[in-house]
Design a protein around this nucleic acid. Structure first.
Lengths: 218, 218
DNA sequence: ATAATAAATTAGACAAGGCTAAAAATAGAG
DNA sequence: CTCTATTTTTAGCCTTGTCTAATTTATTAT
């Protein structure tokens, strides 16, 4: 039996390690979990014992095949619930995260399969993130952060890096959403802010905003 | 903050005490929670401290007004989720209980209000139990168990006492469901079995079945 | 290469929830 | 009304996940 806390640690390791590609430091994990390094060490040991994680003292942690499977399944559930909340229950994209964090831990294979069917097998969640299918497969399509976009080219907004309410409300307030077409007008070297054009209006966004907005060239 | 375990104890006290009308013994509560009397005592003390329960040593436990409010809210959530599972996700009435036990603990006022709206403000769950509204109100309409039904009279099935998968599968197998019209043909004093007629067929049910089937005279 | 600093681990403690065994209170039978 | 059986509570210990403080390992700067 896997506990709720274990699931959350596994998810954090997965995200911090770029879909399990990299090894994660104890401190980074503790930070992400809002806890102390000593607690993270304890949990890492437990996960290693249960074969969800690879661990050598002082060398950081990474997920095993089994661990990745668990992580992807949680992410699948999280994102499907987000779609449900937005499409069926009138949530906005900045309201879904907290509730989905709870719903992702409900244990029932039938539930998640039926939910997937009910929603018409969506491939992306309300923030543009891809939803793994039943077998854990999903395309991690190419996306650039606005920071790396080139002046003069045209892009479409395909996702966000930061799903916090504050950032999403900022985007809503400025009428930027998934699918918004964006042209890069100017990049200011001094503070790394970017002037963009979309829907016939112009806007200067800070570096902080730019690095959290994902685009695809069109 | 109220924990998951506390919520489950409160729910059990509510159900054992006939919607909080009666006092519940420590042993009965421990039994219902599949735990030991000593653990129940500990939890009762904690609930009393948090003002969810009235408790005097050796005198059993009952819910305070606050405790009842919590119980009814959990029941509302449980039953709304059951409706969702059956009506939207193709669950059968014997498959919903376990999953609803998990979903009932999700904390989000907006979630449950929107779900209620999405489902069209249902008044009864798939087992015929009434769903409390936003303010906790619900009619506990008159219902008789089949044990108390009178020979010769006509009834309609309006609910079940036992929501376990086994019992519900038995009913399915014999084509009895909510809304089935039932006439009492004969009551056997020897073993308290009852012969009933419905849909032009006859069936003898044991006392055990009879006492778990709720009817309303028509 | 070594001293200073940063990161990670261990040791010991705590709260929640549960268990066993023993003690105390209540209820029932005569 | 008293003695026994049942119920309830208390005491002490366990596990999970957390913490602080102290120690050990790794890393970086000179």
């Amino acid at each position: 039996m896997i506990t709720l806390t274990e699931e959350n640690y596994i998810k954090a390791i997965y995200h911090l390690g770029k879909q399990g590609a990299e090894t994660v430091s104890t401190n980074a994990l503790a930070d992400a979990m809002n806890t102390k390094a000593s607690s993270a060490t304890d949990m890492i040991k437990k996960l290693a014992e249960k074969n969800y994680a690879n661990y050598k003292k002082y060398q950081g942690v990474s997920l095993t095949k089994e661990g990745k499977k668990v992580a992807i399944n949680i992410i699948r559930k999280h994102r499907l619930w987000e779609v449900f909340l937005v499409e069926k229950l009138n949530f906005t994209w900045d309201q879904v995260h907290e509730v989905a964090e709870q719903l992702e831990h409900i244990k029932s294979q039938k539930l998640i399969d039926e939910l997937d069917t009910f929603l018409g097998f969506p491939t992306h969640d309300p923030h543009g993130d891809p939803i793994p299918d039943k077998d854990g497969k999903f395309e991690s399509f190419e996306k650039t952060s606005l920071t790396n976009a080139k002046v003069g080219l045209n892009y479409v907004c395909v996702g966000v890096n930061d799903s916090s309410g504050e950032f999403l409300k900022y985007l809503d307030g400025n009428h930027i959403g998934l699918g918004t077409n964006i042209k890069i007008i100017h990049k200011e070297p001094f503070d790394n802010s970017v002037k963009i054009q979309f829907d016939d209006s112009e806007l200067v966004v800070s570096q902080n905003v730019a690095k959290n907005l994902f685009l695809k060239e069109v």
